[in-house]
């Protein structure tokens, strides 16, 4: 409880600082104060100080959309991870691990390869739809009356990811050079080359899921007692589950369509937040969103700094950080697995 009080301002400050750094750091070094002025200029049209036009251009068209996309996707993935862990009553649920991201990527890939004339919105919709189907399949495969078993959940994740991988493989084989490049990028995840319409779409999705998740926070807490117990508390469990699964599919689908598969944010962030403030979803969800956003922005700064002037896909960075964490969690769960 005490942790909560300082965590809010702490995360908020971190968010502001990391965002500012993210806008400033890159091949063209811009000082944070200039970045700040440029952002104010962009947002309000009010010129605080003279800014070189090329700097303003880089910030408007490259850095700002990239940073905003990282913020939105980080917050979305972290919240979807937290909700999935609650929904599956399983601490190892994560859109990447259980195959939902792969499913969404397959949906996006189908669109890119088979309907190259289609708009980005079609790609996003297709990713959402495929993500929804995958979530439902994984949920069905892994569910038992007492929740979801870790073994079943991971195995269904493997199976679904394998299937999606095969699908993407076939599409890769069919794809032309242009689509091929897109596809490869998709599977590693990157916020480079962020486009404004995806930024807007991601922000809308983030607003929608944050609002709805927050409304369901108490119900999610009750769901952790068990489905029968939640029903006895007057919850319409089936409706709640369907709603949350659809929202997760929207969140993950749009995130994947915009950035490709960025793993482990949804797994690691809720765990970190739970360690600090406990599992109450009313606080877990918003704080996860903030931490997830901050971590993805930092990971993205890392992605473009580690091998500068070249760039790593941010999905690789999160995997490098997240996979060891996943192994630690698995070790902790080991006695439950056998």
């Amino acid at each position: 409880m005490e942790n909560q009080r300082w965590l809010w301002p702490c995360l908020l400050t971190t968010l502001v600082i990391t965002s500012l750094l993210s806008v400033s750091i890159g091949p063209l070094q811009i000082s944070p104060s200039t970045s700040f002025n440029a952002m104010v200029n962009w947002a309000t049209g009010h010129q605080l100080a003279a800014i070189a036009p090329h700097e303003q251009l880089v910030i408007n068209n490259v850095r700002l959309p990239r940073t905003l996309l990282a913020l939105a996707v980080g917050a979305t993935l972290a919240q979807c991870g937290a909700v999935m862990q609650g929904l599956f009553r399983n601490p190892l649920a994560d859109p990447g691990i259980i195959g939902v991201s792969s499913g969404a990527a397959l949906g996006a890939a189908i669109c890119i390869v088979l309907f190259p004339q289609g708009s980005e919105y079609l790609v996003a919709f297709s990713a959402f739809f495929a993500g929804l189907i995958t979530t439902l399949i994984v949920y069905r495969l892994a569910s038992s009356p007492s929740g979801t078993s870790v073994v079943l959940l991971l195995l269904s994740g493997v199976a679904v990811a394998a299937l999606a991988g095969a699908g993407i493989g076939v599409l890769t084989y069919m794809a032309n050079d242009m689509a091929l490049r897109d596809l490869t990028l998709w599977q590693m995840g990157s916020v480079a080359g962020a486009q404004w319409h995806y930024v807007v779409l991601s922000l809308i999705a983030l607003a929608l899921i944050s609002w709805q998740f927050n409304k369901s926070a108490k119900a999610l807490n009750a769901l952790l007692l068990g489905e029968a117990e939640a029903r006895h508390l007057g919850l319409d469990v089936d409706k709640l589950k369907l709603k949350l699964i659809i929202l997760c599919a929207i969140g993950v689908g749009i995130a994947v369509a915009a950035t490709g598969i960025i793993g482990f944010i949804g797994l690691v962030v809720p765990h970190l937040v739970r360690m600090m403030i406990g599992p109450d979803h009313r606080f877990l969800l918003p704080l996860s969103a903030m931490l997830g956003a901050a971590i993805l922005v930092v990971a993205d700064i890392g992605a473009r700094s580690i091998v500068a002037p070249s760039e790593l896909p941010v999905g690789l960075v999160t995997a490098l950080l997240g996979a060891p964490f996943f192994i630690i969690l698995l070790l902790k769960q080991r006695n439950k697995l056998v």
Binding site: N90, P91, N221, L224, L225, L233, G278, P279
Partner: peptide, 20 residues
């Protein structure tokens, strides 16, 4: 039997009874 997946505090568990 009631198992909770995540480590809620005692009063948080009782609070769930406030749901309806």
């Amino acid at each position: 039997h009631a198992s909770l997946t995540f480590p809620f505090n005692v009063h948080e568990v009782v609070q769930m009874g406030l749901y309806p």
